[in-house]
Design a protein around this nucleic acid. Structure first.
Lengths: 315, 315
DNA sequence: GATTAAATTGTTACCGATAACATCAAACAA
DNA sequence: TTGTTTGATGTTATCGGTAACAATTTAATC
């Protein structure tokens, strides 16, 4: 392995000059820079990441904090991890998975946090290393997320275009930011069309939305579309409609949100918003690394939603 | 962060003694060892992995070499990577994914190789860092794999127990070791029962086995079970039987091997061997790290096959 | 009891980089 | 011309460990 010193000798300069060419090229004459670049190329020099890390006393470790319970049947977190790991590995960082319990064991260079609740805001603000959240928030933390509002807005719009005359929103009973945004998307579309909004909220389980629909079946007019905050809720709604003798998509429309796993096995597939968790995970990693390197906030990254057309809205 | 020096001071010894307590405890008196342990505990000392890596000039990088084409629809490699990464991250190693092309870019501490062919043996032997293969081989490399022979042996045995009177092996047309082993498992069972073996080999595509069965349908007696070398081939066989008017599992039995993804969507599910790729990936990582640390070969690890009962053998 | 071998502990240099400071030459002002 | 500022480069110490060697103590041998 060739080192800084080898390059320095070959270029007839000091180690420090070579180091500067790499890290602060503006502080070196063009003439020397050329010499150094040439030496590096000839010797096929690659900086030793480990030595660099020691000198900067950094750890090359990123902590991924998953603050909610992990549903192992959902490939959601797997995909997230794969996306993050892909980026981190590329830059020779390693990923450490932590939960609420083992959170502060060991040092690191930065955090990726997902599943934050309001009560977490304080300690996250106190963290001394750069942080990127996975999932939108309204506390000023940089984050990566799908444009939730645009998602439900688009789905609502599509449902209206397909001729459904009433839109009912079936949401998640939670105070998290993404839910507010999804509701906002629905509301905006409904208001633009001068319609009357109707919202219901449940825990994120298909049987809850299913029960609700069955119990209120007689109050639901035909030609209604249900804009659901998750595929899970959508699945419950669809099931209830079918069991009550309704026809999807002819008499009733249903849309979901997520498209991670359920969408692959459901039949008919739900018309939903597809999120590339892997890609978003990669973005998390990149944003965080940029933040670490520059020391500055990198802002948030919002992925525009992609419609995934299933069979639960008219064609 | 507390360092070796802090501990050394607290325990009134030299840095070196502390280092020895950690790495070569047998070379230090019990008395001093106690002092050092206490100091470490009181100061909550955790060794700095980066500094250690620099001193040992190691890279903390493991290369995962996938030598065959990656079928991205199969979660096989994803699972493998997840398993490996899980272990490596635990020990603060990072994983670098390489293929035939970018193989020798950059240094590393060890290799995990999968998809090796005979022509690869030479260069793998020449590698200067520890190697673990994923997938059995007969060239003396340490490996992790399912007990392939036991797998087909068990499936063949089960098929006979269920009353099928003839066993036909549908294999993969490849010279890789795992295929020989799967054939051997079938052959052993057949020979033990004094039956006449019948083997056919194809590329690993469902339509190849399907075509074969359909073309030879009139030569296949009822009450035959097909022992297939992969779920893919099994799927083709099952499809052919159904299209030719045969009944699975009443008239014909089918077994597969792998149970990774296809098994989740197929209907009926194939009776097959289930492999936990994630777990095996973890084992790969652990074996390799042990090998790196000890400098000695760790031998191979063979996972005993687990039957996954589907609907393609009689109950 | 003197000599030598073995076991234990401490010193020094080094892994490969970087920051902080020191040096030096050229450019500029008085 | 001389002193001062500026910019470019080199020196040294440091990050937190470890190996190789030196020094010291203890045990073993004759």
């Amino acid at each position: 392995m060739t080192t800084l010193l080898d390059v320095a000798k070959k270029a007839n300069v000091s180690k420090m000059t070579v180091s500067r060419v790499i890290n602060h090229p503006d502080k070196v004459t063009d003439e020397l820079k050329q010499l150094v670049y040439e030496a590096m190329r000839e010797l096929d020099y690659h900086p030793n990441v480990i030595a660099k890390a020691l000198a900067n006393n950094s750890t090359r470790i990123i902590k991924l904090c998953i603050l909610e319970d992990i549903d192992t049947t959902e490939p959601y977190y797997m995909n997230l991890m794969i996306g993050i790991a892909k980026t981190l590995d590329l830059h020779q960082y390693s990923l450490q998975l932590v939960t609420r319990r083992n959170f502060d064991i060991g040092n690191c260079d930065g955090y990726i946090i997902t599943g934050m609740r309001i009560s977490d805001v304080d300690w996250i603000k106190d963290l001394k290393k750069p942080v990127v959240l996975f999932g939108e928030n309204r506390y000023g933390f940089d984050f990566i997320d799908t444009n939730n509002k645009a998602g439900t807005y688009l789905l609502s719009q599509l449902a209206l275009k397909k001729g459904y005359e009433k839109l009912i929103y079936v949401g998640i009973d939670s105070k998290e930011s993404f839910e507010y945004s999804r509701e906002a998307g629905y509301l905006q579309q409904v208001q633009e069309k001068r319609m009357v909004p109707e919202l219901h909220r449940f825990g994120n389980h298909s049987h809850l939305s299913e029960d609700f629909i069955r119990q209120n079946w007689n109050k639901i007019p035909k030609n209604t579309a249900f804009i659901c905050a998750s595929d899970r809720l959508a699945l419950g709604v669809e099931r209830a409609i079918v069991r009550c003798g309704g026809k999807v998509p002819d008499e009733f429309g249903v849309t979901g949100f997520d498209g991670v796993f359920l969408n692959q096995v459901a039949s008919p597939k739900i018309t939903t918003i597809k999120q590339s968790i892997i890609q978003m995970g990669s973005a998390c990693g990149e944003t965080l690394l940029d933040k670490i390197q520059s020391g500055e906030s990198q802002g948030s990254l919002v992925f525009e939603p992609k419609l995934s057309l299933g069979g639960t809205l008219r064609d």
